[in-house]
Amino acid sequence: MAGSQGRGSAGAVVLLGVVLLSIILHSDATIYTVGDQGGWTFNAAAWTQAKRFRSGDQIIFKYSPALHNVVAVDVTGYKTCRVTRGSRFFTSGNDRVILRKGTNYFICSVVGHCAAGMKLAITAI
């Protein structure tokens, strides 16, 4: 019986270690609001200039859900302004996305908005 408790305790210690490591790794993540005070709007691409994004950073899209949305797309969706298979929709008006390593692509899928510049490509290292 004492041996069983020891193994359970070791498992709990390992789990605690994993949780703490996860907190430490994400504690240095930066939180950005897309477009700063202007929020997610047309010509937001300039907002990324002079920023250094890292994998794990969080970006928040703030917008009126009656007027816009955010769709995480692949490079084809970004270039063509079309929603592609596997795209992820956000519609709350206060959407939080964790950046993954590489280039993360976002568009507004409301007709004409992406073509008018409501799209964003963020490269995270």
Results as ranks from 00 to 15, higher is better:
Arg7Gly: 08
Gly38Phe: 05
Asp57Asn: 01
Gln37Trp: 15
Gly35Phe: 00
Val19Arg: 09
Thr103Asn: 04
Ser27Thr: 10
Gly38Glu: 08
Ala44Cys: 06
Val110Thr: 13
Val71Gly: 00
Lys62Asp: 08
Ala50Ser: 12
His113Val: 06
Lys51Thr: 05
Met118Arg: 12
Asp36Glu: 13
Gly39Ile: 06
Ala10Cys: 11
His68Asn: 03
His68Met: 02
Ser92Glu: 08
Arg100Leu: 11
Gly86Phe: 02
Asp36Tyr: 00
Ser64Thr: 04
Gln5Ser: 13
Asp74Met: 06
Gly38Ser: 12
Thr80Pro: 01
Arg88Trp: 13
Val75Pro: 01
Thr103Met: 03
Phe90Glu: 02
Ser22Gln: 13
Ser4Lys: 14
Cys81Trp: 01
Ile24Leu: 10
Gly3Leu: 15
Ala66Tyr: 10
Gly77Trp: 03
Ser55Thr: 10
Gly17Trp: 06
Gly38Ala: 15
Ala116Leu: 08
Val97Asp: 06
Gln49Ile: 10
Arg52Leu: 12
Tyr78Asp: 00
Thr76Gly: 09
Tyr78Trp: 01
Ser22Leu: 11
Ser109Leu: 04
Phe61Lys: 01
Gly11Cys: 09
Asn104Met: 07
Val73Tyr: 00
Trp47Pro: 01
Asn94Ala: 10
Phe90Val: 05
Lys79His: 11
Val110Ala: 06
Thr103Cys: 03
Ile23Pro: 04
Arg82Lys: 13
Thr103Asp: 00
Arg7Lys: 12
Ala10Tyr: 11
Ala116Glu: 06
Thr48Ala: 03
Leu15Cys: 08
Leu67Ser: 09
Ile31Pro: 09
Ala72Thr: 05
Phe106Ile: 03
Phe89Cys: 07
Gln5Ile: 12
Lys119Thr: 00
Trp47Ile: 03
Arg52Ala: 12
Gly8Ala: 15
Phe89Gln: 13
Ala115Glu: 05
Cys81Pro: 02
His68Gly: 01
Thr103Ser: 05
Arg88Pro: 10
Leu120Tyr: 02
Asn43Thr: 11
Ile31Ala: 13
Lys62Tyr: 05
Arg54Cys: 10
Lys79Asn: 11
Gly93Leu: 08
Ser22Ile: 09
Gly77Phe: 02
Thr48Val: 14
Ile59Arg: 02
Ala50Gln: 14
Gly17Pro: 03
